[in-house]
């Protein structure tokens, strides 16, 4: 995935300005920066919830900027949200089953009539969804309404749902916020395991400990501009980054 000179302004506010960086397949890249630096906006641009006013976003060599979100999702880009967005009135399992949407095809009428091949597909959906739940350790909660889960498990469920869509690129928007130390550690293991499986990950995170542990590379945004991009050690020593973070405790 590559960004080339991506820009977006809201009214007079330049939210993202001429940002360019790449994410190598199979690596974890973190995007950090002070609040309001444009990190979530950047995520929304990559996933099609916003369209850039300038610049190109390439995924697998194809320009995807400005396409509607569902079409970008169908190319294999999945995401989680800063404020967890689950389907509250559905069960844990059903939430993950929606994740299989792009990989299945039964339409409205086929579903209503329960045609034989629909049933077969349904079995596969259920099986894959259960596997995803198993992977994040939520299998025993499959039948519960998603709304009753505690926040830490909700974040896990959101990741499981994204994973069910078998993404090649996974965007995690502050997955550790609201998690306790134990849960954060589990999240860290999970991210590393996903990388081992070959999934490319783009991560926005405030927890510097976690970021330093999992990231192969870090991009730093400040006021919508990219001010540094490189391996964690180099970033930690970058004077511009230190200046941007001046007065904030980020050493982790």
């Amino acid at each position: 995935m590559e960004l080339h000179g991506v820009s977006l302004a809201f009214g007079g506010l330049q939210a993202v300005e001429q940002v360019s960086f790449g994410v190598a397949p199979g690596t974890v890249k973190a995007v950090i920066g002070p609040n309001g630096a444009g990190k979530t906006t950047l995520f929304n641009l990559v996933t099609g919830f916003l369209a850039p006013q300038a610049g190109r976003i390439l995924f697998g060599g194809v320009a995807i900027q400005g396409r509607p979100a569902h079409r970008i999702a169908r190319q294999g880009i999945a995401r989680t949200f800063q404020l967890v967005q689950l389907f509250d009135h559905m069960t844990v399992l059903e939430n993950v089953m929606v994740g299989r949407h792009r990989l299945s095809s039964s339409g409205l009428i086929a579903g209503a009539l329960q045609l034989p091949w629909t049933r077969t597909e349904e079995k596969v959906i259920r099986q894959k969804a259960l596997e995803a739940l198993e992977f994040v350790g939520l299998a025993d909660r499959a039948g519960q309404p998603a709304a009753v889960l505690p926040l830490g498990l909700k974040r896990m469920l959101e990741i499981a749902r994204a994973l069910a869509s078998a993404p090649t690129l996974l965007l995690l928007d502050e997955p550790a916020s609201g998690l306790d130390a134990v849960e954060t550690e589990r999240l860290q293991d999970l991210i590393l395991e996903l990388r081992r499986q070959g999934i490319t990950i783009l991560l926005v995170e405030h927890d510097m400990g976690l970021t330093m542990e999992v990231a192969d590379e870090i991009a730093v945004l400040n006021y919508g501009k990219l001010i540094a991009d490189g391996p964690p050690r180099a970033i930690q020593k970058n004077p511009e980054v230190i200046a941007a973070y001046l007065g904030t405790d980020w050493q982790g």
Binding site: F49, P68, A69, A73, A78, Q85, F87, H89, G111, A112
Partner: peptide
């Protein structure tokens, strides 16, 4: 049948979270 099918789940999903449903294709 419909509400418990793939399309039915997607319909319920768009009710609870349109953005999340979009993000899943």
């Amino acid at each position: 049948n419909l509400v418990n099918s793939r399309t039915g789940r997607a319909i319920r999903a768009l009710h609870d979270g349109e953005a999340a449903a979009e993000s899943l294709g």
